[in-house]
């Protein structure tokens, strides 16, 4: 299994340039930049689709293996994060750097969670809808949605109001946040490790 995973990982990594080339070809084919008339182009497009489907399946398989296989995770993720434990001192420093990374990541996650829950809206209503002669309002709220589509299906405001400032959770997509956290973990670990090694 270990050898099988290792082969699949090599296929995944060394196949990336070929995948990029095929993706460019598929894009050109779909936009019509490459002539559809030739049988060769059609065949290449079918190959590109097949390779892409295989690569996607492979990426899902490998990410699941990373979650469940300890040795595979150590082999791959340790290399991605430049983790080195050649002796006891490096093992201790790795532990400290990992702790620092974990704690800062958790702090960032708590901060992001707060930002995603808080809703602030400053708005002005027409004079005929004024309450106690006041037309400017500040609305504060807390929102939590388990699923993404619940968040999107927001009721339309019935009051004709002029928004001065409106903040309804993080405007960043979930993919961006996940990517940012992955990069943060790698950078934070390496920074902590360098600081400890000095």
């Amino acid at each position: 299994m270990k050898r099988f995973d290792s082969i699949l990982l090599k296929v995944f990594l060394y196949g990336l340039p070929a995948l990029a080339a095929l993706a460019i070809f598929a894009y050109l084919y779909s936009t019509g930049a490459v002539s559809h008339a030739t049988g060769y182009a059609k065949f290449m497009n079918s190959i590109a689709g097949f390779v892409f489907a295989m690569w996607m399946t492979l990426s899902i398989y490998l990410s699941v293996r990373l979650m469940f296989s300890g040795p595979f995770r150590e082999q791959v993720i340790a290399r991605i994060t430049f983790m080195r434990e050649r002796d006891e001192r490096e093992a201790i420093l790795t532990g400290r750097a990992t702790k620092a990374t974990f704690l800062t990541s958790l702090a960032i996650l708590i901060f992001l969670f707060c930002l995603s829950c808080i809703q602030v809206s400053i708005y002005r209503v027409p004079p005929e809808r004024a309450i106690n002669g006041k037309t400017g309002f500040v609305s504060l709220g807390l929102g939590f949605s388990l699923l993404e589509h619940e968040k999107q299906a927001r009721p339309v405001d019935t009051i004709a109001k002029e928004d001065i400032f409106s903040y309804r959770g993080l405007p960043i997509s979930s993919q961006s946040i996940i990517l940012m956290l992955i990069l943060w973990q790698i950078l934070s670990y390496n920074y902590s490790m360098r600081r400890l090694i000095k």
């Binding site: 050649r86 002796d87 006891e88 001192r89 490096e90």
Partner: peptide
């Protein structure tokens, strides 16, 4: 069976 950096750290009192 350690790295040179570890010997340096031990001698320097850092580890």
């Amino acid at each position: 069976g350690v790295t040179r950096a570890t010997i340096v750290a031990i001698e320097g009192g850092g580890y």
